[in-house]
Computed example of a mutant assay.
Amino acid sequence: MKNYKLIICLFLLLGSALAKAQATYDFQVAAVSPEPFSVAVGEEGQIFIDVGYLGDAPVPIGGIRVQLSISGEIEIPLPVNFSDNGCYLSGSIWAVTYIAYINGNTEVVLKNMVGVMNDGVSCSMTIPFIGKSVSCEDCGAISCNASFTDEAIGIGDTNGNNNSATALFTVTAPLPIKLGEFNAKVDDCSSVNVTWNTYSEENFDRAEVQKSVDGRNFVTIGSVKTKGNGASVNNSYVFTDNTPLVSGTVYYRLKAIDLDNSISYSRVATAIVKCDNAIDMNIYPNPTHGEANVTFSGFKTNNMREMLLLNVKGDVVKNFKMDPLSNNNLNISELPSGVYYLKLVDESIVLQKKFIKVN
């Protein structure tokens, strides 16, 4: 009888050990991205951090450490105006626990000090920054690394391939103009008016108005000549964007061109488009484990549209066509977890949506 009980105990212990060995504790850094990816010295932007967790047990308070290492071309203003934009199916759980400037770079540590991290949860956070010194193109870097802390008792990372991410950025020279207000506003759900004024224009030729749907990839949609150079001016400008309205946030900036053809870029202005007639795309569920539905609105004809699937670096992973008047299936089950962008490319329309793939 004693041997029988001993065998049962050994069996239970072995079963418990196997269950622990097969448990999943996968914290993922889906993406880190500055918006915009290019700023002038003195101009402002934000760093977006997207993370997620799949696990057989919640991670306790203080159990996750997310560390940002930011090169010295941008700086984080103090005190840190950190924003926890909330977690899917949860609330705000993150806080800045450490910031230091080391050898010209900035180190920032975030921890889930406000709440536990539950299974299937994704979170988004932002930290503002300011352009500090000129860099070559894509020479600035932000790296993000995550790990479980000693507070996560009994939890160890079961997938070490997705707990880091890196993004590049550019800081350009200051503008040749002293820019006052710079705004973009939807006008009666038919167009977007981009307006700005200047208080100084020296050796300045023109401003190209550029537009983006992701805050990174800008295209020129028009050009406006200077109204007159001078150390002290008061010039006002208006440019109307008559391209089809795309639902969501649209980004605008000025590409300032001097008389000697040197180039610099303004800060970014945004317009929030919420119009019934606006073109839009919806991806659900988001996050997805491999298959998602894609629907469109605002299109009048069912002409097949060219689609690009991009990874977080902007590389094209797939290209295919979709019908804007139908419910389309998107299968990415073979791709690794992370942040992806689905982009519609047309002669007059650029539409892009972000979604997260989790394994």
Rank of each mutant, 00 (worst) to 15 (best):
T249A: 03
F355S: 11
P176A: 09
L351Y: 05
L342P: 02
S92E: 08
P34C: 03
K2T: 15
E291I: 11
N162L: 06
C87H: 07
I130E: 10
N118F: 00
K132T: 12
L89D: 05
N183S: 08
N3C: 11
G290D: 05
T295I: 09
S236N: 07
D50W: 10
K20Y: 13
V192I: 07
G290Y: 03
V250F: 09
N159F: 06
V116C: 00
V233D: 04
I102V: 00
P60D: 05
A146T: 01
G104M: 06
N85W: 05
I7C: 05
G62V: 06
A256I: 13
I356D: 02
S223Q: 09
R305C: 10
A57D: 02
Q28Y: 12
S223P: 03
F204Y: 07
V171K: 00
T226S: 06
D315N: 11
N193H: 11
A207W: 05
E208G: 12
P174Q: 13
S266E: 02
D157V: 10
Y88H: 10
F239C: 02
V121K: 13
V171Q: 08
Q22K: 14
V339H: 14
L13I: 14
S69C: 10
G215W: 04
F48V: 13
T249W: 09
F82H: 00
A19L: 14
S266N: 03
R65N: 15
G140P: 03
L245C: 00
L335Q: 11
G115M: 06
G222D: 04
D26I: 10
N277W: 07
E44P: 03
N183Q: 12
E43M: 14
C275T: 13
A146M: 01
V219H: 02
L10T: 14
G120R: 03
A231K: 14
F27T: 04
E43S: 15
T106E: 07
M281T: 03
N118D: 02
D258I: 13
T226Q: 09
N159A: 10
E35D: 13
L254C: 04
N217E: 14
Q22T: 15
L259F: 09
G15D: 07
V224F: 06
L254M: 03
L12H: 09
A17F: 00
L12Y: 09
